[in-house]
């Protein structure tokens, strides 16, 4: 696995893939989908697919792939090595969603939530396998959300393929375990060697697991908080952990699509507060209607400056 293409630009999403085994283009195949790094506030989320001919599922089982979460990092690396050695019949592909992709998607004007992003990423990977000529007959998916709806969505999207979505599928189906190992190994390597594109000098890489409840992660987030910019692109800004810290330790930033209300926000946005209509000067006589600014200026947000 060469994570170089992602490291060349770790602000965007990136696909890594193995060679497609020839046998997968001629024999009926099964495919597993799993993800790594959904919860952490740091680093990318990696989606993985792994596929092999149905006739080889037993061979895959004998590699003793298991749910990546029950394995140590070394065990996962070893198992990935074994999968690599089985490349004659096992193929994989990964979609790396950079933390910046996650932040900017989730914080988009028209919000793109993590579930939708996950589903679209999984669909994209399956489509990639199909486009590469893999003869898909069965898909197994691990999920954290409601399985039924997701299963329906995938079945409709890929007619003629048998889709099984299950919680904990990574411990039930070897091909899903294999996908989870690929995804986890990839995320581990990326997080370990994160290349900060910000000019931060020597960065302390003792950021722990990246999970919000890890004390090391918390300490790191406190240490690397900038009052104006918040964080580097290694951090998921859309995570409440990051937002809470910025709310209390960084300067406030307001956007035109913020959903804030209350007296202060109204004042800031130059809106009239509801209360002002009840005050003595109701009707707003303070502005001379004869001096209404022409729309040439309002459209350009130009106004004459009377005071600094």
């Amino acid at each position: 696995m060469d994570i170089g293409p992602f490291e060349a630009d770790n602000s965007v999403s990136c696909r890594l893939a193995s060679q497609i085994p020839d046998v997968c283009r001629v024999e009926d195949c099964c495919l597993g989908i799993d993800e790594a790094g959904r919860g952490p506030v740091l680093g990318p989320m990696v989606y993985g697919i792994c596929f092999c001919p149905l006739s080889k599922t037993n061979a895959l089982k004998e590699l003793k792939v298991a749910d990546s979460k029950t394995l140590s990092e070394v065990e996962r690396e070893n198992l990935f090595q074994k999968l690599d050695e089985a490349k004659g019949y096992v193929g994989w592909a990964l979609q790396i969603l950079s933390p910046n992709t996650i932040s900017t998607s989730m914080l988009q004007r028209t919000k793109y939530n993590l579930n939708a992003l996950s589903h679209d990423t999984a669909i994209g990977l399956v489509q990639y396998a199909l486009d590469s000529g893999v003869q898909l007959k069965e898909i197994f998916v691990d999920t954290v959300g409601p399985a039924e709806k997701y299963e329906q969505k995938l079945s409709q999207r890929f007619p003629g393929i048998n889709v099984t979505v299950r919680p904990k599928a990574d411990s039930l189906f070897p091909v899903v375990s294999a996908a989870s190992i690929c995804a986890k190994v990839c995320r581990d390597r990326i997080v370990k060697g994160w290349n900060f594109s910000e000019d931060l000098g020597e960065v302390d890489t003792d950021y722990g697991s990246g999970y919000p409840n890890d004390p090391k992660t918390k300490a790191w987030l406190l240490k690397y908080l900038d009052p104006v910019f918040g964080y580097s692109q290694f951090v998921r800004f859309s995570w409440s952990t990051a937002q809470t810290l910025m709310d209390s330790k960084a300067v406030a930033v307001h956007w035109d699509d913020d959903e804030e209300d209350g007296e202060k926000a109204a004042h800031r946005q130059n809106n009239k507060s509801m209360l002002s209509y009840f005050s003595a000067s109701a009707g707003g006589n303070d502005e001379n209607p004869a001096h209404q600014t022409h729309r040439f200026f309002t459209e350009r947000r130009l106004r004459s400056l009377k005071t600094l």
Binding site: S11, N100, S103, T104, M106, L107, Q108, S197, E198, D199, L200, D226, V228, F229, G230, S232, Q233, R236, F237, S238, A242, M246, V253, W255
Partner: peptide, 27 residues
């Protein structure tokens, strides 16, 4: 003062007359 060059300029991408960057997680 703000660390503009360290955070902002360093992560700005420039292609075909359009620049992209993110600020506070927004594109």
């Amino acid at each position: 003062p703000a660390e503009v060059s360290q955070y902002f300029t360093a992560t700005t991408k420039d292609h075909k007359h359009e620049k992209t960057v993110s600020f506070r997680g927004r594109g």
